[in-house]
Write a protein that binds this DNA or RNA. Sequence first.
DNA 1: CGGAGTCTTGAGTATCTTCAATGAGCGTGG
DNA 2: CCACGCTCATTGAAGATACTCAAGACTCCG
Lengths: 237, 237
Amino acid sequence: MTCSFRCAGCLGAVPEWQLLEEPERWEFGRAMRPRVLGAGQTLFLQGQECHGIFCIESGLVGLRRADEDGNSALLRLCQPGDILGYRALLEERDHRNSAEVLAPSRICFIRRSHLNGLVSRNDALRERLLRRALAELNQVEARCAELLTSGLKLRLLSLLMTFWETHGVRDGNAGYQIELPIQRKAIADLLGAQPASLSRLISTLHDEGLVRFKGRRVLISDPSLLAIGPLTSQRVS
Amino acid sequence: MTCSFRCAGCLGAVPEWQLLEEPERWEFGRAMRPRVLGAGQTLFLQGQECHGIFCIESGLVGLRRADEDGNSALLRLCQPGDILGYRALLEERDHRNSAEVLAPSRICFIRRSHLNGLVSRNDALRERLLRRALAELNQVEARCAELLTSGLKLRLLSLLMTFWETHGVRDGNAGYQIELPIQRKAIADLLGAQPASLSRLISTLHDEGLVRFKGRRVLISDPSLLAIGPLTSQRVS
DNA sequence: CGGAGTCTTGAGTATCTTCAATGAGCGTGG
DNA sequence: CCACGCTCATTGAAGATACTCAAGACTCCG
């Protein structure tokens, strides 16, 4: 019932918090406010002032960016252990993206007022945040490169690959399978495509026999085929 | 003829180096090695070990990423004042991108051995680097969002907009113009398109009367039209 | 002038979008 | 339990967008 118990999951999952020493750590745990959120809720909106940061203990959150014309896309997915909103906090600016809960999640919130002193006092923490920013930079750059070079099919296979790593299970008799944590529209937004195009692509893949979608269940004969997707796309289609 | 003179441009252009106090600053200036490079040369290659960092004093450099299939794309442009290779240095990893000189540039190189102590000693410097990483993150995310939502035409107009800011001049009688610093192939790589598609798009824009390309010279009747590109693309084409 | 590199154009094709209609799944209330 | 309405997903047809391959034009430089 202590506060560090309430958010123990976040304290454990986020490497940044492991740097905190005991008196500070306890104080910090007390400042964390856990929330349980369902798909569709938002943590913050693009353009909003940053009131603090969010740590994902479980579930899945998407960062969405909208442009002036009303178009929007999911920039990337955030998984347990990720921190949201720390960039706006450090830069002292408004949030540049919206954070949208995609699957039921347990998330801890820490108010800005509890962080300012902590961050400016703790060099190791800032070092960690620098590492995190660099890691995210690599991730976004990789995504960017993929968008620049690959067509929809390869991007979908690549996305399935990442889901395979986190949500993939060995199916008893029918090979392997993935339980998709998000719905079609979200996948489409993540790929920069229309839901209709995604649907069509899915039936194509079905016909090719590589990957079979049944609702949120994806059956794969051989997960390694997701990686060689590039080759098959040149030969098959 | 002193060393801080040789690279005075870099010392002035890069905010990170302004943090250095005088004895250290002089020492640092001595470690900088200036180079003058022409289009087509490379600073480092994807997968190479990081030997140090590069500061752009003048010119233009592109970060290129290639995937396993041989496709490659320009992730982004680096302008005077930018630092290249600091990410690989901090993460102690190989370079993830190639750095390719796109226009004649004056660039200073600083060996890794000269930096390690400096970075670990100087908190303000690390703070600056964190800021830089965050700024780059915003930049790449914006690009990513654009790739996810906009078609080729809007992406080209957006690119022209950025060139307008750095290379745009008011033409005496014929309105406004931009002197493109890079060639078609590089623009295509930057947009994630084929040179042929870019060429076609350019003639379309010419027919619409918005933007007229003549070699590397771009004539624009009204630069603000580049921003409203989105609207016109919905109405006109 | 010749030649290499760069840019444009043409024709045919593949990919993706749009809009609208249909279908499948699910919870609710009768 | 089933019918209803709701949301989500798929499909069809037509059109726009971008790609491929190949040929031609342009430019710069020797």
